[in-house]
Amino acid sequence: MGQVLFNGMYTGVQYSLIALGLTLIFSLMNVLNFAHGQLYVLGGFVTYYVYGGMKLPFFAALLASALTLAAVGCLFQIFFFRPVMRRSVREESSMLLSAGTAMMVESLVLIFFGEKHRGVPAVVNGVYELGGVFVPKGRLLVMGLSFLCMVAFILFMRYTKPGRALRAMAQDSETACLMGVNTARYAILGWALAAMLAGIAGAILVPISGVNSGLGNWISIKTFIMVMIGGAGVISGAIAGGLVLGIIESLGYHFFPGGETYLIIFVGLIVFLAVRPNGLMGKAV
């Protein structure tokens, strides 16, 4: 049981990291980023090439993933989302645009990287044993890094000037603009940060579970589940949703080794949303 809970925590921490990026864009611009899972996959592939292919140190690969994805995020905002959001008053437009970008990234990844499942050698080897629970060092590293990123992100949002500006935008974009926040520029920063978080999550995961081009949609769907559990647009909700999903998933795989876990999760989610449409911590819609 301890092992199951540890695995749940391990999965949950990564999930939280992925959900943070989605939540950031959602709260800033009210855009649901369908491409989030695809960005995660892209981050994984960058690390695969830099760390597995070019044999550079893992942290260089991590940095490369983060920077590449931050650039992709900027481009998304500048070329796609800004023109559409500026002109359109309908929610549908931004959502379809983001579904389109998801499909585009996925097919580009498929064309350039192929459909093989790619893995890289582990960063650290060895296993700790704590009271009957096996804790591989690699997984501990993943948990540590994810945790570090989350803390860094929260501190950034809490105590720095750009962080404050982003929070102001999330609360009320127009008022923030009136208070002298350059909302256009900070929107780009928001996208860059969010894509970077997805990229980092992808990069950290490659040494353990590998990456393939078909993962994206599934990751996006999982992220949506987390956001719905936790409540959209709230940082604490993203983290709670990620942890909850990780632990439920781990328990599910333990008790139902067949494929029923996610079926049960979906049905449970529908019932849960009937009771609490805004999730655990969400604001009223």
Binding site: V84, G100, M103, M104, S107, L108
Partner: peptide
């Protein structure tokens, strides 16, 4: 998928 997605993005733009 690539062409459909480009059409989709182009449409929105």
């Amino acid at each position: 998928p690539l062409i459909y997605s480009l059409i989709m993005i182009g449409m929105m733009l």
